Amino acid sequence: MRLAELSELSGVSTATIKYYLREGLLRPGRQVNATTAEYDEEHLRRLRLVRAMIQVGRVPVATVREVLGHVDDDSLGRTMRLGAALWALPHVPEPDAEDEHLGAAHREVGELLGTLGWQNAERLTTVSPSYRSLAVAVAAMRRLGYDWDAELLVSYARLMHRAAVLDLDFVETRESEAERVEAAVLGTILVEPMLQALHRLAQEEESARRYGFE
């Protein structure tokens, strides 16, 4: 397909597509002549991914480029390829080293992972932004006086593990390795807001069941 058709099918303007090409977010099309290139279904799929990351996920262009670099890195195994892509996505700010609750939060999260038997997660504690995000959130809860006990955290973690199983079951329906990693990244951007919305709807439903509408 030519650029105009790629634009029509994707809903992305030709000017924006050209910008993505210049920024290295899309690989160049097959050159037909000096002024014309042809694009294929892979370009269309990648363009939709880029658009979702930028428009829905509000991910900066530089970060999109970094994520896509990991997606396309054939030298990495699947776990590291997926992890590297997801770690490049935005996370909570770096923790305040002076936070008196942070050390306890790290210990608590470490104990949580041990209780769950998540050995891979324990190995990644020094590098995973998700681990740091969880520790920062737990520290904030403690600082504000909300002392969730370990049993409650374990229950939530097990719910999230079930969600992760569903995530990767879907990812494995994709044909190529690059598509699987793309699906995982897209899932992080799009599924997490859906899960958040479902969580809030469930809270509203349970609140109405318990307390009525008064």
Rank of each mutant, 00 (worst) to 15 (best):
L3N: 01
A4D: 10
A4Y: 01
L6N: 03
L6Y: 04
S7Q: 09
L9F: 06
S10T: 09
G11R: 11
T14C: 04
T14Y: 00
T16A: 15
T16H: 06
I17N: 04
E23K: 15
E23I: 04
L26K: 01
R27I: 11
R27F: 10
P28I: 08
P28M: 04
G29R: 10
V32G: 01
T35D: 07
T35N: 10
T36W: 03
E42V: 13
E42Y: 02
L44I: 10
R46E: 06
L47Y: 01
L49W: 10
V50I: 15
V50N: 11
M53W: 02
I54W: 00
Q55I: 03
R58L: 07
P60D: 13
T63C: 03
T63S: 05
V64Q: 01
R65I: 07
R65H: 12
E66S: 01
L68I: 14
L68S: 13
G69E: 05
H70E: 12
V71D: 07
D74G: 09
S75F: 03
R78W: 08
T79S: 15
T79I: 15
L82G: 15
A85N: 06
L86R: 09
P90A: 03
H91V: 08
E94W: 02
E94Y: 02
P95R: 10
P95K: 01
D96S: 05
E98N: 05
E98T: 12
H101G: 03
H101W: 08
A104E: 13
E108V: 07
E111Q: 14
L113T: 04
L113V: 13
T115L: 15
T115Y: 08
T115C: 14
W118P: 00
W118F: 14
T126H: 13
S130C: 04
Y131T: 03
A135T: 11
A137L: 08
A140Q: 06
R142V: 02
R143V: 08
L144G: 14
G145F: 13
Y146F: 14
D147S: 11
D149Y: 04
D149T: 02
E151V: 15
E151K: 15
L152K: 11
L152D: 05
S155L: 15
Y156P: 05
M160L: 10
A163F: 04
D169Q: 08
V171G: 05
E172F: 12
R174L: 14
S176K: 00
S176L: 02
R180E: 07
V181T: 15
I189K: 00
L190G: 06
E192L: 12
L198D: 04
A202G: 14
Q203T: 05
E204Q: 14
E204G: 04
S207Y: 07
R209K: 14
Y211W: 15
F213A: 09
E214R: 14
